[in-house]
Computed example of a mutant assay.
Amino acid sequence: MAKSKWNTVKDKLTLVEGWARDGLTELQIAHNLGISKATMEKYKKEHSDFLYSLKRGKEVVDFEVENALLKRALGYQYDEVTKERIVRKDEHGKILTDIHGFPTYEMVVTKTVKKEVAPDTTAQIFWLKNRKPEQWRDKRDIEHTGNVTVNNPYKELTTEELKKLAALDDGDG
């Protein structure tokens, strides 16, 4: 029988949570732990602290994605910052150099522009269909109660009479 790796895995529960928070799949997490996906499933069933670490990590990512989707659906503003690399100078205008005599540089903000991202209708539709499916899903379930009456003018005719009518329709009669 193979030796269990649980003792090694249980020391890495903080890592497991972090990997889940970073968006790694369970297969990737199992690989990082040096275990198979089947062993991971076994540990999830047998060790609640392992399952809890996975779930807690995934929750954070789910909230971040929900927030990003909502932000995209509503639109938002941001500052676009342009920076330029310039040669550093002292207060007298002399170029500052490093220990090898090469000029030193620094990044300086040269322009800031407020930009706007328009609301995204696809994100809005996705949000509404998932958050309010009763009002927004494409498929509607309609339940009919009561009786359905059908007016069939041919219900009293015999099979022979129906055949004669069908032959007339074909233009043969």
Score class of each variant (00 low, 15 high):
104 T>A: 01
142 I>N: 06
53 S>Q: 03
74 L>Q: 06
109 V>Y: 01
111 K>R: 15
114 K>A: 15
76 Y>H: 07
62 D>Y: 05
68 A>N: 08
155 K>Q: 08
28 Q>E: 15
144 H>Y: 03
139 K>C: 01
44 K>C: 00
88 R>T: 12
92 H>F: 09
154 Y>A: 07
63 F>Y: 11
34 G>A: 04
91 E>W: 03
125 I>W: 04
60 V>W: 11
110 T>W: 12
76 Y>P: 00
161 E>A: 12
64 E>M: 08
83 K>E: 15
101 G>M: 07
127 W>Y: 13
88 R>P: 00
96 L>S: 07
159 T>Y: 00
87 V>K: 15
63 F>H: 12
154 Y>H: 10
38 A>V: 12
132 K>A: 13
134 E>C: 05
28 Q>P: 02
160 E>P: 00
68 A>P: 03
91 E>I: 01
148 V>N: 08
158 T>L: 01
106 E>H: 02
126 F>D: 02
159 T>R: 04
112 T>I: 14
93 G>W: 01
58 K>Y: 00
51 L>C: 06
136 W>K: 06
139 K>G: 00
72 R>W: 00
27 L>Q: 13
77 Q>D: 14
87 V>C: 13
142 I>V: 14
53 S>G: 04
60 V>Q: 13
163 K>S: 09
157 L>H: 05
130 N>I: 09
